[in-house]
Write a protein that binds this DNA or RNA. Structure first.
Lengths: 143, 143
DNA sequence: AGACTAATTATAACGATTATAAAGTAAGAA
DNA sequence: TTCTTACTTTATAATCGTTATAATTAGTCT
């Protein structure tokens, strides 16, 4: 049930002293329920029925708030606009070169890579990102 | 000697039927010799002494040409502008969260991850990208 | 209620990139 | 050589995602 996730996220925000406005609730709900990785504009368009007066700035502002609270991650690929992903468990993404679909993909963390990088470069390593690219089953079928 | 690399790159382009204009030569030379990962604007500024009339569009156009020839890779991180990297050997990048410095980092390819992703998701995997983030030695020293 | 703070809205600004049209340049054919 | 054609560069405008600003609205606290 995704309402449990929503409630958990809201409790998290409240604990950090963030007010739960109707817009914030709706954006969060959409992020959790959509199961996709929407752009700011997609969120904006999805909610304009419920909030005809909502501004794009509100979407961006609140995505930043959620990011700072650690609830949401911003995904920046080569294309024009960022996508936003609800942080549930750690996972990587695999992206279709043909249709752009993004699918979650679980894999044990690559700690070994991080520690090697640390010793080779002298950096103090904090995190890494990885994406895998290919052609999804649907697009393979259509050649 | 980097002139050997430049000549190899030029031969590669000529073989693909690409004309070597003075601007193209200069952009390529800058990419190979700078040893950094410049943005389009940095390249533009670096060459405006030699080519006072060169347009930003020329830089973008030719970076695209080089990309299509497989000579250059576009690196898209979260920040505003893309960076461009001469493709020599396969390598990953480690990026300083504090000053933005990008350092090359060699690591045996993560074929295992790709093949697992393939079997789990049904995608036909073609490639992957990975970046490691941390704090570089210089920034560590300065706290 | 009154005062203070935070959030939303509408709009303008910004910056990276791309598109367009005009002018220039090289290469091949006649 | 000269014509023709295709490609390149230039200058400029347009686009688009995102951020900043200022005014308004809504919550919260005493």
């Amino acid at each position: 049930m995704s309402s449990a996730k929503i409630n958990a996220a809201i409790d998290n925000l409240k604990g950090a002293g963030v007010r739960i406005t109707p817009q914030r609730h709706a954006i969060l709900e959409h992020l959790i329920q959509s199961m996709s990785h929407p752009t700011a504009d997609e969120i904006y368009k999805a909610l304009e029925g419920k909030f005809p007066n909502m501004s794009v700035a509100t979407v961006y502002n609140n995505l930043r708030v959620f990011k700072e609270a650690g609830l949401v991650k911003e995904l920046t690929y080569g294309d024009s606009s960022s996508r936003f992903d609800c942080v549930t468990t750690d996972h990587y993404h695999i992206i279709c070169d043909s249709c752009g679909k993004i699918v979650d993909f679980h894999y044990p963390g690559l700690d070994e890579v991080e520690s090697l990088a640390e010793s080779v470069t002298g950096f103090e390593v904090g995190r890494h990102r990885m994406e895998i690219y290919g052609v999804c089953p649907d697009c393979k079928r259509k050649h």
